[in-house]
């Protein structure tokens, strides 16, 4: 599958909501490529873009969401693996990133489209402190009750000392 066609389809449907995209192709000879595609999408059309991706092939979420922190916003990164057809080495990584302003840390759940993402969304709520709206199961995934509310392990500068 061509990465341009993914970007074009998304752009046709969502227009300027697609903020940026870049790709990285590593060639391994014999026509085998490792393809990674990064797409930035704004928060309003994030949910519908996942729905569009889902129609293109087998959509698998690969890791829990990492994030990048900036002065006033957080960039949340959703790494998907998309496979269109059953040929070898045709799976490409489609990495969707969404900007979320820090004073309104909320994003809509994608579990209605990719049910397997539930654990990852629960972990995101717990570790990064982004609120997932309409999540079917908002409990903490890992830390139980021993961490106080409002402490997000991956966002604290020093681990043990500052938490105690």
């Amino acid at each position: 599958m061509k990465t341009e066609s993914i970007v074009t389809v998304l752009q046709n449907k969502l227009g300027s909501h697609i903020q940026a995209s870049r790709e990285k192709i590593t060639n391994y000879g014999n026509g085998i490529n490792r393809v990674t595609l990064w797409i930035s999408i704004d928060r309003e059309s994030f949910h519908s873009s996942i729905a569009i991706l889902k129609t293109m092939g087998r959509l698998h979420i690969s890791t829990p969401m990492p994030y990048k922190e900036y002065e006033d916003r957080i960039e949340l990164i959703y790494p998907f693996a998309l496979k269109e057809k059953d040929t070898k080495f045709s799976e490409i990584m489609v990495i969707i990133s969404v900007d979320i302003p820090k004073d309104d840390l909320k994003i809509r759940t994608i579990t209605d489209i990719v049910p397997g993402a539930l654990f990852m969304e629960r972990e995101t709520m717990e570790m990064i402190g982004v609120e997932i709206e309409d999540i079917p199961d908002p409990r903490r995934l890992f830390t139980g009750n021993y961490l106080p509310d409002g402490v997000y392990p991956l966002r604290t500068p020093k681990s043990k000392e500052s938490m105690q």
């Binding site: 490529n33 087998r58 049910p115 397997g116």
Partner: peptide
Amino acid sequence: ERLCAVGPTARGSGLMKDVRVDYPVNAYY
């Protein structure tokens, strides 16, 4: 497929999903 199963669990259900074949790593390709 919906629950994003991986490995022998997915393959046992007939879902042809194997990173070694879907994505080039090491010497597998």
